[in-house]
Amino acid sequence: MISRVISRDDEFLVALRMSGFEGVFCSDTEALNTQFDAALKDKNIGMIILNEKDFRALEEKVLAVKEKKRSPFICTLPGRDGYSEEDFIMKYVRDAIGVKLD
């Protein structure tokens, strides 16, 4: 199984490529959608890595995939400035399990 980075941020992509991940640069949202769909169809891909901005663009699609499929694992990493929402992790957990944690 391989990991694939899909991003519209060239610096994010280069940093992860330097870490040994394969990646695809997308110039716009349409290309991002196309590459994400292609990665879902590829049985060799075990993990898809997105930055937060790209996750927001694909949020409905990503959450639908997470609800229906076990593979591939979809990982969201913050951009250069960190997460844009203060409680991103808590919101993610709340959405995933349906319980508000304090």
Rank of each mutant, 00 (worst) to 15 (best):
D87R: 12
G20V: 08
L77H: 03
T34Q: 07
R70M: 09
L32A: 02
F73G: 00
D102T: 09
K43W: 00
N51C: 12
S3V: 00
F36Y: 15
N33R: 13
G98C: 01
K66N: 15
T76F: 09
K68W: 01
D87K: 11
E85R: 15
I74M: 12
L13M: 05
E85V: 10
L32M: 01
K61V: 10
D87L: 07
P78V: 10
L13Q: 06
C26E: 03
F36W: 06
Y83S: 13
L101P: 00
L40Q: 14
L50K: 02
Y92H: 13
S19L: 09
E59H: 05
K69H: 13
D95A: 12
D37A: 11
R80W: 03
V62E: 10
P78R: 10
L58R: 14
I89M: 09
D95Y: 05
V14W: 03
E67Q: 12
G46Q: 05
K68N: 14
A38M: 07
D87H: 08
A31R: 08
D10Y: 08
L58P: 14
Y83C: 14
A64M: 03
V5G: 09
S71V: 12
K100V: 12
I48T: 06
I2V: 08
L101I: 15
V14Y: 09
K69Q: 12
Q35W: 00
L32T: 02
E22R: 10
T34W: 00
F88M: 10
